[in-house]
Design a protein around this nucleic acid. Structure first.
Lengths: 207, 207, 207, 207
DNA sequence: AGTTAATCGAGACGGTACGTCTAGTCTTATT
DNA sequence: AATAAGACTAGACGTACCGTCTCGATTAACT
């Protein structure tokens, strides 16, 4: 007979506390950077003992990652019915819009925190980027199969070129992640990703 | 006779202290992140009063920026004699190599710190990025004039596509800034930036 | 018919737990002060839930008092066959020897704890001192009746003088409770307690 | 030439803080025990950073000792003009009265704290008891020289017998340090310390 | 045999204080 | 004036316990 997972002894974890901590963290992030926030402040805001935070998360960044992911579920939304080219464009535009606001600030804070704590960066990669990247990669591969994207460069590089400029804007503060940027960037990558014109057999391509 | 600018009264600024502060900062950065470093630690290491640091720099990030720039002068090196296309490749490879080491860690720390202090980001842009970007932009424009780079997308976007993936690797920890990446990235952007083959009017484009 | 005390329903108190708690407490007291010991540590050491301690004792000092008394029963031993004077000496020497070791440390800890918790002091008086004092008082009174002790000062004061110096050494750390002290103290009080030399009936006692 | 003690560099210690800390400590001690008081509470009450307390005192007990001693100077008062016997009585009565109030509570707290921190006890002995004991010992010796106190027992023991009962009452809570006790105790020790009547039938004792 | 009720272990909970560290400011004597 | 030194208030760090609570599991007596 199949043994059901037994609950460990002792009082069960309080879901109310967990939720309060995550919510308070997001609330505090609206007005300050992750670095400025203290665990004490989170505990105070959530009406929770500090120990409860330390018991379940290794760092405040881990709390933020979880808070971010919880509020992020199923935002990626549907791209069905679109061709892969359109789907990629759709995703890029969505990401730019998303990163222009609160979510972008949070992602930036997490990456920043990750520069002095490798665990943070690793966890964020595993819990956020891996899935997204895999999904995007699939679209790119599909587009290559259909001849919508050129396939004379590795798909990996294509992915980097599609998404990196968005992260650079997010983090460098060079220029805003606005509509204008979305248009320019999408237009540019669509031109670039398009397969080069088929050469007539008579004109050999130079280089 | 022309009056030389009069030195203000009082003891002059100690250059020994300034140098000691900048050097100690770089030394500390070798073993810890900018966030972990405290101004007290810098003062201690430099044998300097805390007040001396606060008097001349607004934040530890500002110290790091200055320390970084001082040790960075004229590293960019020569590209003369190269065509703009080669020059761009050269610069990309150089940057990747540079960012793979200590310099990259420092740049990453500064960007991270900038996520919670806009002044830091602004100062880094103005004192580091603007000049480099202008130089790179010139090369790109030259390449476009010579037909080595396509000109159907804005030069700005081209710049972003050339450099952003490097920064993404630097900051995301997805993958290392190694030789393999340098090859792949340079190869990819060269393919992408090359002008599309001229269509002969008689051959209609497929798809 | 007389109704026997009815046991209330529900699971009976675990004597194994009670014993484990008392023993663990004594064990911990061997290496640290009562103040340093935490209830958590006692529970951990005894393999017992914290609640079980709180259910049966109001404070850790109460646990210590009980642990001390349990291990103390019938140590006072026999003085039968001795005259009251010898019995008093015997008791003093015994007490000094006892307080020189583990027992002394524990008594000192309890008194110390009692300085910030009157209940502790009260309980210790009632459960430990009252009985001992009554017994000692009886001996003193017997000694007075037999003319072995002077009776020109109250018996109470005599008791204080007999025992206080021992407690002062125990608590003040001025000097150790060693054999030398035992000899000196016993000798001194025997001299002092002895009735003053009988005056010849013709000379009326002055003062 | 005699070299004056050079002040070390840096900002001088703030006497205002020192005073505030000592006063706040005494104030807090009026309503709670030393054990209940936290260093945080002292700092809060004194409007002082915690570090300032830790910088100058090793423990809260050390603060209390200093606060106690500062407020204690020259309380011992004059016994000049009295014979040693009267002086001893005077001191005993004074001590009982003193220990019946706030001072007594503080001394008790310090002794209690000392049971788990030998340094505390040692410091209290050195800074408080040694001087007092030396002074009292001198009086006793003088009394012995003058024949007011018996000299058939060691002076040390006499001292113990004079003072220990006061400390026992202070710490045991057996009975209060009231006027009645003062009378009884002083009367008793005066009887006991008086030299025993000379038993040569021919020489009547002259006081 | 089933019900009821108090016990037990475990351990999570909101709090408080610990002793350390740093922030950024201020004071002091020196240069 | 600027400097090195270092004290100052303020407050966060991560840990340890406090005393309370909530669990599921035992353990007796009482139906």
């Amino acid at each position: 007979m199949i043994q059901a997972a037994k609950r460990p002894p002792g009082r069960a974890r309080s879901d109310a506390s967990r939720t309060a901590i995550l919510n308070s963290t997001l609330k505090l992030l609206e007005s300050q950077s992750l670095q400025q926030i203290s665990i004490e402040a989170i505990a105070r805001e959530a009406g929770v003992g500090k120990g409860t935070i330390y018991r379940w998360w290794p760092s405040k960044a881990a709390v933020v990652i979880e808070a971010f992911l919880v509020n992020h579920i199923s935002r990626v939304s549907a791209t069905k019915g679109m061709g892969p080219r359109e789907a990629v464009i759709h995703i890029l535009r969505l990401l730019i819009k998303e990163y222009a606001g609160r979510e972008g600030r949070i992602v930036a804070q997490i990456i920043a925190e990750g520069q002095s704590d490798p665990d943070v960066l690793r966890e964020f990669r595993e819990r956020f980027w891996y899935g997204r990247r895999a999904m995007a990669l699939e679209l790119v591969n599909e587009a290559r199969r259909l001849g919508e994207f050129r396939d004379d460069i590795p798909a990996d590089c294509q992915l980097d070129l599609l998404f990196s400029p968005i992260y650079f804007r997010l983090l460098s503060g060079q220029a805003p992640l606005d509509q204008e940027f979305a248009d320019a960037h999408c237009n540019a990558v669509m031109h670039l990703m398009a397969p080069p014109v088929r050469q007539t057999p008579t004109t050999p391509k130079s280089r």
